[in-house]
């Protein structure tokens, strides 16, 4: 079971842009992946799962796309 993890902005430093990561279906939560990635919850501004805003307690499923952003903005 795999999900695609996409990292943006400073989260890419020393990590990756895009990677498939193995999960346990209906068990692995976003926060479990954060531990694996070495990203602290408080560093995160946006969690996007399959193009919709989400949160650390979201359980992931096969084929999900998880995108993580630190605090950024523009306009």
């Amino acid at each position: 079971m795999n999900v695609e993890v996409r990292l943006f902005a400073t989260f890419r430093n020393g990590r990756f842009k895009k990677k498939n990561i193995e999960i346990v279906e209906n068990e692995t939560k976003v926060k479990d992946l954060l531990n694996e990635l070495g990203i602290k919850e408080e560093e995160i501004a946006l969690i996007i799962v399959n193009g919709m805003h989400s949160n650390v307690d979201r359980k992931l499923e096969e084929g999900d796309t998880l995108a993580l952003f630190p605090p950024v903005a523009g306009g």
Partner: peptide, 17 residues
């Protein structure tokens, strides 16, 4: 965020959504 990437960092966010 803004000092490091400027406003351009929004491209990937809006595109993801």
């Amino acid at each position: 965020g803004l000092p490091t990437y400027g406003t351009a960092v929004l491209v990937n966010i809006l595109n993801e959504l």
